[in-house]
Write a protein that binds this DNA or RNA. Structure first.
Lengths: 185, 185
DNA sequence: TGGGTCATGTAACCTGTTACATGATTAG
DNA sequence: CTAATCATGTAACAGGTTACATGACCCA
């Protein structure tokens, strides 16, 4: 997956490992995270596959830059990967932590879902600010055809966070109702 | 994470690696997947940590059963893990595939989001059937206190799939509008 | 007689995380 | 003077996937 993410970025323009890291950190971070160590390793793998090539650019003061660009074979592989529309199963740590909460007292669990709610609200407020989307999306690359898909990921983020807010709200309500019943006995 | 999932299951009742696999396959599958190979490895790790112990039960015909049960230290660790309410970042392959779709023609992308929509609808229909939730949740263990949290994960599943349905719908609408504009030029 | 379930795993591999190392430049 | 940024990575470990192996029992 990261392999193809890197391929997709290099397809926009040639980049060094460091620049790729910056894009992940500043723009794709909300749906994917990647450490430099992993990026540099994957770049070597992509090179072995013949999907990217690199040129070393000497610099003064700083270490040499290794600029990677996608090959024709790499572009084909990117398209092949995009054409696959099978839905892979997901892992959800939040639901794992929810499932086993019966072990803890109600009050603590209410606090847990309040943290979820606070998180989703914080996220929504962040996203409502106008230029959040504009970090990588418009600045680095000026391709209006692409922008529609970038917008879709943002839209997903907002709809997801709103869903999370509503879900945590119902969880809190349900648990608060239980505490009242208990004290009413 | 899997470590603690296993710990949580063993906290309900003692189980063999095989039984744990069955629970993951039949009940937790929609938010977590685990292969037997991984489960057997994690059980050995948990044993090394002193969080579980095991007894070998000889059986006729079948291979010996290795029944695991959680220790006091394991119960403490489970509670410690549940108390952590920090939100860990998620990876979302679907958004990775959405982000780079500019490479493919509109028609193919419409088909992509239609596949997403079909998937979410199929899932919602599956979940609306009454006894889906009742596989592990009520059959294996009779603990009404826990059931409320199991219900919350199901509720999340439905709200998430409904959100996914709405999102893919808006994506399709947006792309269809574009195709009309193109043909109208 | 052949395939599915019960029940155990091992081995190799891929992916992701954490910690560390280097060294110049630049901004506070 | 110190911390951050630019820019490269390595090493070790943790977590997850894929493929294979064994062997008896049960059902069609």
């Amino acid at each position: 997956m990261l392999k193809h993410g890197i391929l997709g970025l290099l397809n926009y323009k040639e980049m060094s490992g460091y620049e790729i890291m910056v894009v992940f950190r500043d723009s794709l971070n909300f749906f994917w995270q990647a450490q430099t160590s992993q990026i540099y390793r994957e770049l070597q793998n992509l090179k072995k596959c013949g999907w990217v090539t690199d040129v070393t650019v000497p610099q003064q003061g700083k270490p040499d830059k290794n600029i990677f660009s996608v090959t024709e074979a790499g572009k084909l592989e990117l398209k092949r990967w995009l054409s696959d529309d099978s839905m892979e199963p997901n892992k959800n740590p939040l639901l794992m932590r929810t499932f086993f909460r019966g072990e803890l007292p109600l009050e603590e669990n209410i606090r847990f879902f309040q943290a979820v709610q606070a998180y989703s609200i914080r996220f929504l407020k962040e996203m409502e600010k106008p230029p959040v989307s504009a970090s990588f999306y418009a600045k680095e690359i000026n391709e209006p055809e692409q922008a529609i898909y970038w917008g879709m990921t943002i839209e997903y983020g907002m709809m997801y966070m709103d869903m999370l807010r509503r879900w945590s709200e119902t969880c809190i309500t349900r648990l608060e109702k239980l505490t009242k019943e208990h004290s009413g006995d």
